[in-house]
Write a protein that binds this DNA or RNA. Structure first.
Lengths: 143, 143
DNA sequence: TCACGATTCTTAGCTTAGCTAATGAGCAAA
DNA sequence: TTTGCTCATTAGCTAAGCTAAGAATCGTGA
């Protein structure tokens, strides 16, 4: 069985790789379009259907004021709408517009492109390892 | 062999996990201390021994002016020194000070803590998968 | 009922990260 | 020596993130 030392070592390697990959993927963004954070929020919103700002902030692991800004940008572009909560006057319901869904689908593809190209160039067993790892990482990232 | 569709799917999962993990790890930073980017630059510098700003920017996948700022912050804290290049008057040699190495070692441990804890909680085979994946991801991230 | 505490969202104001464009210094080669 | 290139930095911008504080609303206990 792996001991704690191994976990530390793997954590370090993983952390460094995550940081660099994050920068790489961010850089793959088409010029003049949605930023990484904006696309991420839009994605979470669509996956959930509709969320309050607080909920979206929690999902995105960001403080509410930060989400207010991000949503503001998305709303300016007509990709997200704020609608009043039916019973609670304090809350707001956020949802993606038709245009928001279209823009998302359009750029999601390009967004993955660099990474998918890298994955496709790997040996089959490496790719398999990464596919499994992706599931585990996603589980961790939601914890 | 895995087809392109599989790579796309894995890329998407990976990208989302990377983004959230990145935020998580950044948030694990001790208050009032080095930021993620600063620690990352300090790490790269130590691993390489000494680098010019340009080289460090390349390693960190950042534009030179961005690195100038980061190095400036590190220098203010006495963690990095700029020394003139012996033969080329345009260039500068960056290196970590003794204090820089100490600060790095001190926070590197805490930095990995959250992630290492997550990894330690996994099943042994999952941990093994992630350890292998970490190597592959690091390879990709340097490409 | 109503007053007060809690919750939700937003605003204000800040720091950091990142970019491009432009500047100045130094190198190298014609 | 002049011309063009490279390196680092400066200037100036946008976006991301934070905390603190505000206004509106909810809900509960007296």
């Amino acid at each position: 069985m792996a001991d704690r030392g191994t976990a530390d070592e793997a954590a370090k390697t993983l952390r460094e790789a995550i940081m660099r990959l994050n920068r790489r993927v961010r850089q793959a963004r088409p010029v003049g379009d949605l930023t990484f954070s904006q696309l991420s929020a839009l994605t979470s919103l669509q996956l959930a259907g509709a969320l309050t700002p607080r909920e979206l902030a929690d999902v995105e692991r960001v403080q509410p004021p930060t989400m207010t800004k991000i949503v503001g940008k998305l709303e300016e572009r007509g990709l997200v709408v704020r609608t009043p909560h039916p019973t609670d006057g304090r809350q707001v319901i956020l949802s993606a517009t038709e245009q928001g869904r279209a823009v998302y689908a359009q750029f999601e593809k390009a967004r993955n492109e660099w990474l998918a190209t890298q994955l496709a160039a790997l040996a089959p067993d490496e790719r398999e390892t990464l596919a499994q790892a992706a599931e585990i990482l996603q589980k961790i990232s939601r914890a």
